[in-house]
Amino acid sequence: MQPIIELKDVTFGYGRQPILEQINLHLHPGQFAALVGPSGAGKTTLLKLMLQLLPPNHGQVWRRQTPPLRVAYVPQLETVDWNFPVTAEEVVLMGLTRHTTHWPWPRRAERKQARRLLAELGIGDLANRHIRDLSGGQQQRVFLARALIAQPECLVLDEPTTGVDMHSAETIFHLLADLNRQGMAILLTTHDLNMAAAHVPWIVCLNRCVIAQGPPEKVITEPILTQTYQAEMQVIRQDGLIFVHQKPHRHHYLEVVPKPVTGGWPGHDEED
């Protein structure tokens, strides 16, 4: 199968020190993959190289040209300007900017489409809310709706579950799995190894270079994760599920044990 995005021997750095070295990766139509690795491993930079927002120092980034690949990108929430005056619906409509005419105002059909998508994502009643007034999970769904309205073949998400509660994160992963079943290629970065192991069929471990890639059961192992995170990691497998956590270290704490308070409040005499 012909890939839709391919990186060949890609090296990139902002200064002398390379952030990414000798990266070889393919993304195929309909593939669902997660990039995992510690902070500073180069995950976001790799996404930007794949989106051709950054040119590699060495190597090649290839993207399907005929027909042109339709890509949508959901950036990290922390990069969003939350004081920008836009409502949820206005954000979603941005996804149609390329396909629309130069008529300045959104057409009725476009607004209907945006509202339908927001409703499908369970936030239909929040269309007129300012984006700052939404919870983390709702904000993430607004930006997901902006991506989906562009009808992409390939969806790229940068840490879609960061700053989102566990239930919302689970919902987002289920939604992405549904989209993938409909044929959409999905590439995301995440710090949530447990969620990635449970929902994503292809994991890429990254720390400046690709340490390993493959299905979770092959890649999420103690030696690979220890090499990726440069820390001792523990992998527990139970009932077909994979759980990961960093091996706990013994810490020495001050032995302060609060004693029950007897009598009145400090400074107050009980007889008063």
Binding site: L53, T79, V91, G95
Partner: peptide, 18 residues
């Protein structure tokens, strides 16, 4: 109008969206 809005909001992401 719409191009200016998207570019002002986030020029980098706007580029990805064509």
């Amino acid at each position: 109008y719409r191009q200016l809005l998207f570019t002002t909001f986030d020029a980098e992401v706007a580029q990805v969206y064509g």
